[in-house]
Design a protein around this nucleic acid. Structure first.
Length: 671
DNA sequence: GTTCTAACCTATTCAGTTC
DNA sequence: GAACTGAATAGGTTAGAAC
């Protein structure tokens, strides 16, 4: 009304016009009936708006058309009008018709515009006031930590969702493997099963017993952190006030800082909180647990990987995290691969170590130097004597070093990073295998085939050679490996990005890409690439490798029967995917399921090639060969290299040993 | 009970403004 | 030019009144 009526130009007129078009329809339905009354009032009070509203339609339309359509410009509410509207809104966010009319009188806007303004205002307030989602909160606060939290979340959730089928299989897989050697290892059980908090809790408890003392300090910190998030959530919920979420968060953060020392009890309370809050708190807790350990004390504690994720919600952060951490580090022995499968295999790990390296690498990758890390990861099998296993790893590392040295260290610290590393390791393994196979081929056949394979491997992308996939893959991989720095880096990048976004749809995209690639070419190279990306998505897959350092298991799983065999790969993959997804939309869930399946399939394609062919050969031989390799490796890394190089069959055997060993262990050996 | 009207909500688009 | 904000629209739902 007031001055703004400046109607002249546009406001008033504009106000009238806009309604004309948009409102015309509305007018038909709603206003016309009421028009009589409103008209009178409006006409009296507001000529501009009333006129437009009332219905001097022709005039209005003309003006509207002229004003709006020409440029389609929109008028912005004048400051005065806005002030009036704000006051009115504060007084009553949902004014009835009478109130609106009253407002219209005081403003240069017509009733419809006022109504829309209130609608938009309410909508805007809702957006601002609605409580932040845990993810949002995490994002705001922790930023980088989000990933971890997300992972934790994903894992945590996935555990719930996937518990059904996957968990058991995973457990069965992991347990048998772990049990013989590492029954005492809470970590082994826990890692494979991010599934339930209960399991995690149990593992955490066991681990806690061992590392209780050390955990105390860190636990306190973790509790503090956890507490803070929960508190924050509560506060935010309380504050649903119109304060902007940011302001609230800031306030919360400040409060946290002040209250850094909260009782662990609060943590529980936070968990107990109903609804979103509790959910948030839970997330926070897990996330914190994850983050805290890594961030707080143990930057170096590679072992934390597995452990951290597991402890998630249920377990007290401190206890969970620490117990977990210690076992992996201490346990990290190379045996793990062979252990479960065959009693001999346990010792064999040295041979298996190469394959296991991949697995190990992921596990340890986060933790420490590549070589050392890998070995420890392999060592998971507590039972396995670390000393013996180490040599094979070194051998493996020899082939790997370039790759491992570069990228691995950085991410090892975090779960995602694990995944990435795991992938890398997987790739490395392939590379290793590739190198081996390539060498073997070159040496043995040395013929055009090897050269061709190499060429194809170099060309990688469309390599048609699937049949000889393992070899070719290896060749490609091997070639890539040296380059691997390059090729792998990109992969890593993908993984990283995906990691960052685990929760987000990105994972889906990655999966899709993977699927497509697989479906199309199923080329070895493509597969490897896919794997790396999947690594992101496939925290699942990564998990399997990471936890047990059994990427191959994952491979085998797809083959063995994505669903049927409850072995890790599927369960872990599905469960995790599911778990992560569960949070997300069901649609994602589905996609993720698919993707996992595809991924599995992809891997299966890759792995199967290795495992299947080789298995058949090796199963009979595997043990013996493995022992030989292991022994040789143990004896002298150089000898191992010699094996790799000189022995064509041995090189193949390696692949077989690694893949087949893992597969056989996971499948045949186990059962 | 059905239909109509008015109001509301959510999601989205698009223009305007700011950096 | 990108990002943000706000105005406007479209589709849908619900409650009340009229038939």
């Amino acid at each position: 009304m007031d001055p703004q009526s400046p109607s002249p130009g546009g406001a008033p007129s504009s106000s009238s016009p806009p309604p004309s078009q948009s409102q015309l329809p509305d007018m038909k339905s709603s206003e016309q009936p009421s028009s009589p009354c409103s008209h009178s009032a409006r006409s009296t009070s507001h000529e501009h708006s009333s006129s437009s509203v009332l219905g001097s339609d022709p005039l209005q339309q003309h003006s509207d058309d002229l004003e709006r359509h020409p440029k389609g410009k929109r008028k912005r509410t004048a400051a005065k009008d806005k002030a009036i509207l704000d006051a009115a809104y504060n007084a009553n966010a949902k004014p009835d018709k009478a109130a609106r009319l009253d407002i219209v009188k005081r403003v240069s806007l017509n009733e419809k515009e006022v109504q829309i303004w209130f609608q938009n205002r309410r909508q805007n307030d809702r957006r601002k006031s609605r409580p932040l989602s845990p993810q949002e909160i995490a994002a705001l606060r922790y930023g980088g930590m989000q990933i971890l939290s997300s992972d934790a979340m994903s894992s945590y959730n996935s555990s719930f969702s996937s518990d059904n089928g996957n968990a058991s299989p995973t457990q069965s897989m992991s347990q048998p493997l772990s049990q013989p050697l590492s029954q005492p290892d809470p970590t082994l059980s826990s890692p494979p099963r991010p599934d339930h908090a209960a399991v995690v809790a149990a593992a955490a408890v066991a681990a806690a017993a061992a590392a209780a003392a050390a955990a105390a300090a860190s636990s306190e910190e973790a509790d503090k952190i956890k507490d803070t998030p929960s508190q924050d959530v509560h506060r935010e919920v309380r504050h649903q006030d119109r304060e902007e979420s940011r302001a609230v968060q800031e306030a919360v953060t400040t409060v946290r800082k002040e209250k850094s020392s909260d009782d662990p009890l609060q943590y529980h309370l936070s968990q107990s909180f109903p609804g979103s809050v509790g959910y948030l708190s839970n997330r926070w807790n897990p996330a914190n647990s994850f983050t805290m350990p890594s961030t707080l004390g143990r930057a170096a504690g590679d072992n934390s990987f597995k452990l951290e994720p597991f402890p998630p919600s249920t377990c007290s952060p401190s206890t969970s995290s620490r117990p977990i951490l210690p076992p992996p580090s201490s346990q990290a022995s190379q045996f793990r691969l062979s252990l479960s499968l065959e009693g001999k295999a346990q010792v064999v790990p040295s041979i298996s170590s190469p394959p296991s390296d991949t697995a190990q690498a992921p596990t340890l990758a986060g933790t420490q130097a590549l070589g050392s890390v890998r070995r420890p990861s392999l060592h998971r099998s507590h039972s396995a004597s670390p000393s013996v296993t180490l040599p094979p790893i070194s051998l493996l590392t020899n082939s790997l070093p370039s790759l491992s040295a570069g990228a691995l260290p950085p991410r090892l610290t975090r779960g995602r990073s694990r995944d990435v590393h795991a992938w890398e390791f997987c790739c490395d393994v392939q590379n290793r295998e590739d190198a081996l196979t390539a060498q073997a081929k070159h040496e043995s056949s040395g013929s055009a085939i090897a050269a061709i394979s190499l060429l194809r491997s170099t060309s990688s992308s469309g390599s048609p050679l699937q049949p000889s996939n393992s070899a070719k893959r290896n060749a490609t991989a091997s070639k890539v490996a040296p380059r691997s720095g390059q090729a792998k880096k990109p992969k890593l990048n993908k993984a990283l990005s995906s990691v960052g976004r685990l929760q987000t749809s990105i994972g889906l995209t990655n999966k899709r890409s993977v699927e497509k690639e697989v479906a199309v070419g199923s080329d070895k190279v493509k597969v490897s690439v896919l794997l790396s990306p999947s690594g992101n998505e496939s925290d699942k897959e990564n998990w399997s490798p990471d936890e047990e350092g059994n990427p191959r298991f994952t491979f085998s799983q797809p083959q063995s029967g994505a669903g049927a065999t409850n072995r890790r790969p599927l369960p872990s993959g599905t469960s995790r995917l599911d778990k992560q997804n569960p949070r997300r939309t069901p649609g994602r869930m589905l996609q993720e399921y698919r993707s996992p399946a595809f991924l599995l399939g992809t891997r299966a394609n890759t792995a199967p090639a290795h495992g299947c062919n080789k298995r058949g050969e090796k199963r009979g031989q595997s043990p013996l060969e493995i022992f030989e390799d292991s022994e040789n490796n143990d004896a002298v890394p150089a000898e191992v290299e010699l094996f790799m190089r000189g022995e064509v069959s041995p090189s193949k055997k390696r692949d077989v040993d690694a893949v087949a060993g893992l597969l056989s262990l996971s499948q045949g050996n186990w059962r």
